[in-house]
């Protein structure tokens, strides 16, 4: 075997095997899902577009609208709090590593455990009810489980650490001399913020927004545990079609639809300058 052949063989083994695994267990399943979504029942059933048309029925349109509203609300909330947090860590504190670690560690705690922790707080007679009674705001048991707000807070709680990371990265790369220069030239803190800081951390801002918006749109566990049957999001409909209604083609169509939306959002974000590929995070 020539040196050149051995080179290609090695490359094929080294890169080919991992890529092969991803093609087999990641890309192929998604392709099968796409294929199935065009069937009227399990193959060899005839081809149809009905599954996609059905998505725009009143019932599912309602769920889609709720999912979209929730995504926007969670993203705005997390962006404001997370950016403020990252800004404060960079500008006003010295123990950056410790603070960052304290922000990240809850994120690596099991997702279901974090949801359970919130259930303890939100449930009727739970920690929040106790606290409100203790300070005298209320004089009865209170609970906010299975409400829109519970899901909103739950999603914001899990994504806040994730969004804070790219915010922090872009803010800590910002040259502080530029801020000082702006202030020396007479701009106040607010003017400096929107004419210097914000434009220069734009990419990190977009990356954080994407990291929150995408998994929120596909959320399934949080609305199931904190929202119950009244607050279902599109992810829960996929679960229902798959595990209860056993309408796999329709479930597949919703999955493809959600993926398409994610791709469009990603495409838009790269167009306006965010770079998500460099940011590793986790979603659930």
């Amino acid at each position: 075997m020539s040196v050149r052949d051995r080179y290609w063989l090695r490359l094929l083994l080294l890169v080919g095997i991992p890529v092969g695994v991803l093609l087999l267990f990641f890309v192929l399943p998604l392709v099968i899902m796409l294929w199935l979504s065009f069937h009227d029942g399990m193959p060899p059933a005839p081809y149809t577009l009905e599954n996609y048309v059905r998505l725009f029925d009143g019932l599912y349109l309602n769920v889609l609208w709720r999912t979209l509203t929730m995504t926007v609300q969670v993203t705005v909330l997390v962006t404001i709090v997370g950016y403020t947090l990252a800004y404060s860590v960079v500008q006003f504190s010295r123990r950056t590593t410790l603070l960052l670690l304290l922000v990240i560690l809850p994120f690596w705690t099991n997702y279901i455990v974090r949801m359970y922790a919130l259930i303890n707080i939100f449930q009727t007679g739970g920690a929040m009810s106790w606290a409100l009674n203790a300070v005298g705001v209320l004089n009865e048991d209170y609970g906010m489980l299975f409400t829109h707000e519970a899901v909103l807070i739950g999603l914001a709680y899990v994504w806040l650490p994730l969004a804070t990371l790219p915010f922090y990265a872009s803010l800590s790369n910002l040259d502080t001399d530029l801020i000082d220069a702006s202030k020396d030239l007479g701009a106040g803190p607010i003017k400096t913020f929107y004419s210097v800081t914000l434009p220069l951390t734009y990419n990190g801002l977009i990356a954080g927004i994407i990291l929150v918006a995408i998994p929120t749109f596909g959320a399934f566990v949080t609305p199931a545990l904190l929202g119950g049957t009244d607050q279902i999001m599109i992810g829960n409909v996929i679960d229902q079609q798959f595990n209860q209604a056993f309408n796999w083609p329709f479930g597949a169509a919703i999955g493809i639809f959600v993926s398409l939306i994610v791709l469009v959002v990603l495409g838009l974000s790269t167009k306006i300058g965010g770079n998500i590929v460099g940011v590793g995070g986790d979603q659930q």
Partner: peptide
């Protein structure tokens, strides 16, 4: 796999 919603890949 980090970016595509988990529920989509799970079902697929």
């Amino acid at each position: 796999p980090i970016i595509v919603p988990l529920i989509v890949v799970g079902v697929a």
